[in-house]
């Protein structure tokens, strides 16, 4: 089938970009060292790409829209706030900064708790208006940004440099422990949601159709919203904010794989996500020589694509 062929091609491309990243520019005799440096990064990249791509894909299905992304859930400013507060109050030498695993866990817990609190209020009130939820998310995001700006202005410049590393996506924060924890979390989400993935096909037809076709809409949306939050929080806590990767990846996926079936879409988007982030990181390390961040690169591309999408006549 054509879809399977495309999937195969994508897999091939993923492997190529993986090899490219792993084996490019290795000086003779440093192979082991380079691998030791690059392999954990690759694992982290793939984990993050899976989370971001699948998270954004599911999110866009829930909101029935290909322009909105989970970045408007307000998770990124919350992440930044968490990091800023830690460094501001406990300093860059505190355990919560030095111990990356502790930092990772704390960040994830805070992001999840805040989101669950918000969902609770909104879903309990019987309001199933997801857009409203997002609007509240962005407002809270703006509020967090106000705090961030204030704290970041008065923070000691040396401490700020430590913070800055956390504010731009990078692969330097990853260690084996985090990878392990992240993988466990990701797999639990996959197991938790796997059986429900088929409902996404119907949910993508809109709320009323979905209910009419026998989907317990409220319950499923709540569940998927939570799953999206976990995925995005996980990716953010792992490599930092990468706002537009998901947007770019999911839209490219829809362009390439023209189907509504999520079992194809999710796999394709995950592969495309890996390709994008691997090639991006290769570019950052080998062409820009770390003068640009992965965040900026992806945001540039994703952002231009975003503007192209919204300027296109009759976007939906």
């Amino acid at each position: 089938m054509q879809l399977n062929k495309k999937k195969f091609l994508l897999l091939l491309l993923t492997i190529c970009s993986l090899c490219l990243y792993l084996f490019i520019d290795i000086k003779p005799g440093t192979f082991d060292y380079a691998m030791k440096l690059r392999l954990p990064k690759v694992a982290g990249v793939i984990l993050a790409a899976v989370c971001l791509s699948a998270g954004t894909l599911i999110f866009q299905t829930l909101v029935n829209n290909r322009i909105l992304t989970p970045c408007i859930l307000g998770l990124t400013p919350l992440y930044v706030l968490t990091q800023t507060v830690i460094i501001f109050f406990w300093g860059s030498t505190s355990l919560l900064v030095v111990n990356k695993t502790a930092n990772f866990l704390l960040t994830i817990v805070i992001m999840l708790m805040c989101s669950m609190f918000l969902y609770r209020i909104l879903f309990e009130r019987q309001s199933q208006n997801i857009l409203l939820l997002l609007l509240i998310g962005t407002v809270l995001g703006s509020l967090f940004s106000s705090f961030n700006q204030t704290l970041q202005r008065i923070i000691d410049p040396n401490e700020f440099m430590v913070l800055q590393n956390k504010l731009f996506a990078s692969l330097t924060n990853i260690n084996a422990e985090i990878l392990f924890l992240g993988a466990i979390l990701l797999f639990s989400v996959i197991i938790w949601c796997y059986k429900d993935l088929k409902y996404l096909d119907v949910i993508s037809m809109g709320k009323e159709q979905a209910i009419s076709l026998g989907v317990n809409y409220k319950q499923k949306v709540k569940k998927f919203m939570l799953a999206v939050t976990i995925l995005i929080s996980l990716a953010t806590a792992m490599i930092g904010p990468v706002t537009f990767l998901g947007f770019l990846v999911v839209n490219v996926t829809h362009e390439i794989i023209k189907t509504y079936k999520h079992k194809y879409l999710i796999i394709a988007s995950v592969l495309i996500g890996c390709i994008t982030i691997l090639l991006g990181q290769t570019l950052v390390e080998n062409v820009f020589h770390f003068n640009a961040t992965l965040t900026s690169l992806i945001t540039f591309t994703g952002g231009s694509y975003f503007i192209y999408m919204v300027m296109r006549e009759n976007n939906a």
């Binding site: 037809m205 809109g206 009323e208 939906a316």
Partner: peptide
């Protein structure tokens, strides 16, 4: 049920 506002994005 079938409603008239069937603006699909798919």
């Amino acid at each position: 049920i079938l409603k008239q506002s069937n603006s699909l994005y798919l």
